[in-house]
Design a binder for these strands. Structure first.
Lengths: 328, 328
DNA sequence: TTGAAAGCGCTAACAT
DNA sequence: ATGTTAGCGCTTTCAA
């Protein structure tokens, strides 16, 4: 590889002059500039990023940590992150945790090793909050309340739960089922929706059962199995609320078993990834503001990287409903 | 940030000794080792990856370049890459090109800048093959024949086209339509399937029309619009062949318009991403061997990084059909 | 068994 | 306007 020294020698100047030409900062006589430029081209020189990184003490990379990239929600999310980060001059490193704790630790370590300048943590996490608290470095939680000191951005999941509930109420449901535990998780703001959903429907005298969400995405069949179990155990169900894939699996089961949607059972999906647009009937969905989530998180992380502190420690973004034909 | 010098001072030894303890190479007296270890812990020291990278002349990162991460095929692909690369000790950088030429150039530049040790190029590319040829560095094409000298890995798309054709023939179709041009692209092996598909069905006296694929994914509606156009312009169509999303959109249109699947029209999808498993009726699909594609490409790129050359310059992987209920 | 020093390739301060 | 030099933090000879 050719270095800046090679170029300097070739052009008969010092390395600093080449650096000045490259960066455009500082005074360089027009003639020298041309000589340097020619040398650069002659040698086909490109500056070494690693050396620059070392000097500047930053890698220009932000890691985005998620459970599993192949999950449609996370792939749309990381896509949005790549766009946002690119706009502010950062490169994106993707990291799957596959729901494993030691992966999370390993990725946190990257930050300490200065391999990345910041981390956006969208993974289902199980680490003690001290582990985040301790590292005083740029970390932003995405839909994750990692520790008191770690800022996060999330959609307004309470509103999301309410919107879903109201939609099913309006459609006249009496026995609804949702996929997701109603536990008031401290870490994951998104679990709030289940709490609110149940509260709102029950306030209308509607029966509400909960099915556990499988933590693991890659085993596709879990969705279909969960759907089958739901219909078998709740033959009287007339309203379903779950993330896109649960909703899709339930719709699929219903159609395959002569259960009419929306006549016999109404479905409201959550997340709003593209799959909901390819189904028939079209799926009524609560849509997470994926781009805005990414934009806000990127704004926060760059702020933390640059000034090493941040004013607000929490950003909640509005959520909306897109009506399809799985509700009435 | 605490450096190796700080640790050395704290332990009362030289930096080299600390380095030896860290790497486990070279002789260190047991007692010194303990002293160093204690100093490391006391200072909560972590080695700086950027300095290491500079010294070793490698970043430990491989870039995966794709048109758009949110497309289900590419998200499953990059997911598989992340897994494979992780296994061999590399980190994954994702790069969306959004079908833009200057993005491709920019990413190629990263390789020259030694920001990444290798590039896996899965993007729809439009650069002149010299641009790849010229850089004598680790590049592997994924489903892309970038230049004579650039090795690539691809699924056996000819077989894929044949399988799809035979499935529709077997199902008794007489008028089929495929999404994708029958141009014998030099760059993209996957376009081979359209050529073979047409050849095989026409050999059976079946009419075969082609619809152009929209290059751009993010505009969701293009799929629905294409599907609508197809059915309007070809009311007699009884067999459709297209990538998962085209297939899904056609199924959706058919169901919405009282066209029965598979009675009136048969559909075969191509790629086999998860969406095909969530539809009703279940989609008959030609499945790309996504994991194997990633494994092979990673094997090739690591070989190129390590020995800077590679024996085979082309790997074609077998492809298979998964029968659902959109064919008979 | 250990330390000093050179150097990876770059940039910025300081001279000139 | 330009060159020299001192690092950035690490690893690896080379001496001791």
């Amino acid at each position: 590889m050719t270095t800046i020294q090679d170029v300097a020698k070739q052009a008969g100047v010092g390395a600093a002059t080449v650096s000045r030409v490259l960066s455009g900062k500082g005074y360089v006589k027009q003639e020298t500039r041309e000589r340097v430029t020619r040398a650069i081209e002659a040698l086909n020189y490109t500056p070494n990023e690693m050396a620059r990184n070392l000097f500047h003490g930053k890698s220009g990379i932000v890691a985005v940590i998620i459970p599993e990239l192949s999950h449609p929600f996370f792939s749309e999310l990381v896509n949005a992150f790549e766009v946002s980060l690119c706009e502010v001059g950062y490169q994106t490193m993707v990291c799957n945790t596959f729901y494993e704790k030691n992966y999370e630790l390993r990725y946190l370590e990257m930050l300490r090793r200065q391999r990345v300048d910041g981390i956006i943590f969208g993974a289902h996490t199980s680490l003690a909050s001290e582990q985040y608290q301790s590292l005083q470095r740029p970390v932003v939680g995405l839909d994750r309340k990692l520790a008191e000191t770690v800022p996060y951005v999330a959609a307004d999941h309470e509103e999301g739960g309410r919107l879903a509930a109201e939609e099913l109420i309006r459609s006249g449901c009496r026995n609804v089922v949702q996929f997701g535990e109603v536990e008031d998780s401290v870490i994951t703001p998104s679990s709030q929706r289940h709490f609110v959903f149940r509260k709102v429907v029950e306030a209308h005298g509607i029966t509400c059962a909960s099915y556990p969400k499988q933590p693991n995405y890659s085993a596709y069949n879990t969705y279909q199995e969960s759907a089958a179990r739901l219909f078998e155990e709740h033959p009287d169900v007339d309203g379903i609320f779950g993330t896109d894939l649960y909703a899709a699996a339930c719709l699929q089961y219903a159609l395959a078993h002569g259960i009419r949607v929306p006549e016999d059972v109404k479905i409201v999906a959550y997340d709003g990834t593209y799959i909901t647009k390819f189904l028939h009937p079209e799926m009524t969905t609560i849509c997470q503001p994926i781009r805005q989530l990414a934009n806000e998180a990127v704004r926060m992380i760059t702020e933390m990287i640059n000034v090493n502190e941040i004013k607000e420690n929490k950003v909640i973004l509005p959520i909306s409903i897109r009506r399809g034909n799985t509700t009435t």
